[in-house]
């Protein structure tokens, strides 16, 4: 995949200390295009749809916010807790600014959890970027499948 100017700019915004203290790449030294391409194939293998996953994550976050900071059961099978911190975070691709809202989504059947933010949902939906391996907010495709559909 070709390294576009937009991706080059995004990459400079992803290093620690620019948008977040930890950055978006974790310990991943692969090229950004490679990270995205590999996750695209993982998504395909897991039979996941980017739009649908983003919608579900957003839905659970919205439902979780009704717990007012405390964990809340959603649709019987999931427990969601949201935390909100002061301020906003910009997307590394500079196409949006997002509230600092974290959601912890736990599937009660298999006890697996996903941890994501409002920005994570945007990155997944608009850029098919799940963050680099080792990043705190990295979403693994197999985990997405197990938590959302397990």
């Amino acid at each position: 995949m070709k390294q576009t100017p937009a991706n080059k700019k995004a990459l400079t915004n992803m290093v620690p200390g620019i948008i977040t203290a930890e950055g978006f790449l974790g310990d991943d030294h692969r090229a950004l295009t490679e990270i995205i391409a590999e996750d695209q194939s993982h998504f395909k293998r897991e039979n996941l749809d980017w739009e649908e996953v983003a919608e579900k994550l957003q839905y659970f976050m919205d439902q979780g916010r009704k717990g007012l900071g405390e964990p809340i059961t959603v649709d019987e099978n999931w427990i969601v807790r949201t935390d909100e911190a002061r301020g906003h975070l910009a997307c590394p691709w500079e196409d949006g600014v997002f509230r600092k809202i974290n959601a912890i989504l736990k599937n009660k059947k298999n006890s697996l959890t996903l941890f994501y933010t409002e920005l994570t949902v945007h990155l997944l939906k608009e850029h098919q970027f799940l963050e680099g391996k080792g990043s705190t907010f990295r979403l693994e495709p197999h985990l997405i499948k197990e938590v959302l559909y397990g």
């Binding site: 977040t20 203290a21 975070l89």
Partner: peptide, 11 residues
């Protein structure tokens, strides 16, 4: 300041 001057908290 909640972000230490990173321009992400608005405090």
């Amino acid at each position: 300041s909640a972000c230490g001057g990173r321009g992400s908290c608005g405090a």
